[in-house]
Nucleic acid binder design. Structure first.
Lengths: 155, 155
DNA sequence: ATGCCTGCAAACATTTTGCATAGCG
DNA sequence: CGCTATGCAAAATGTTTGCAGGCAT
């Protein structure tokens, strides 16, 4: 099992190899993310958390860091529904999981598995589109909301 | 093959059965969408097009109509990258296609096929999450951008 | 000394809301 | 008549940008 420290080290490596300097501010942002993988932070949340350790930090810096990290493949961005973007630490490429977005309470659950490699290969072969990454999310109702009767009857 | 008229009829039916009134404004928005399935309109684009037929139409009305249509399953919303939301007519439920978003030029290509039914079934069985719909998009580089050398070398 | 990085504030784009009016059932 | 839908303008939201000052190389 990978520890937080190992993940961080891997991320640092990747950033360095791409010539992205890990400034104090960026490091704090990265560490907050790496401390809790499997969590989906909004830029705002991240900002607040990071500010506990770097009170002078600016929100714009957080956005800039996230963009950088995203491009480096160290962080991935989640666009779901009407909400703000969420960010999460990306352990390693090709090791995806899917997101289950609850229409009742907005929670994001995860499902660890990625069965899209075959499909990716087919798409590349058939269309010539060179795939870099993919995003999948399922919308629906989580067990909790179903239990509370929030979910509509299945059609 | 389904015609635009048939699609519209199906949509009208669905809206009616859900008690959503098809006012003149909504009808125009729906018709613009139905006239070109396989296209991904921003609210703004839609607004401009619809206004040719209903010059007094307000942008807010377009947004309100889209929300309604989305909830009724007649239109689906696409969240991709940093861009505004895009909307497209949804032919019929369970008849999905995937989106290929080009990082080079921003174009959205489509890939007609949906292999996620099995996965959906498994997720529902294993997690108790009741899936209503899913969104998949692949990011990468389209053939045109690859030809122009915009795509980075594969890693 | 140069150039990237930062914080702040202002700008921006998209989407939502409040409200008075108009139209339908 | 009451209720919903509409247009307009203003507000809210999330994100990006410009710029002056700092820090590191």
């Amino acid at each position: 099992m990978t520890t937080g420290a190992q993940r961080l080290e891997a991320a640092r490596h990747r950033l360095e190899s791409l010539g992205v300097r890990l400034t104090p501010q960026r490091r704090v942002v990265l560490e907050v993310l790496a401390a809790q993988p499997e969590r989906h932070f909004s830029a705002q949340e991240l900002y607040e958390r990071a500010r506990r350790r770097a009170p002078a930090l600016g929100l714009a810096t957080v956005y800039r860091a996230l963009l950088l990290f995203e491009r480096a493949g160290v962080v991935s961005r989640l666009n779901v529904g009407q909400e703000e973007d969420r960010f999460e630490f990306e352990l390693e490429r090709g090791h995806h999981h899917h997101h289950l977005v609850c229409l009742g309470c907005g929670r994001i659950l995860e499902f660890k598995e990625d069965l899209l490699e075959d499909l990716e290969a087919r798409i590349q072969a058939e269309t010539g589109f060179q795939i870099v990454d993919h995003r999948v999310h399922f919308t629906g109702y989580c067990p909790r909301c179903r239990a509370r009767g929030v979910a509509p009857p299945s059609p």
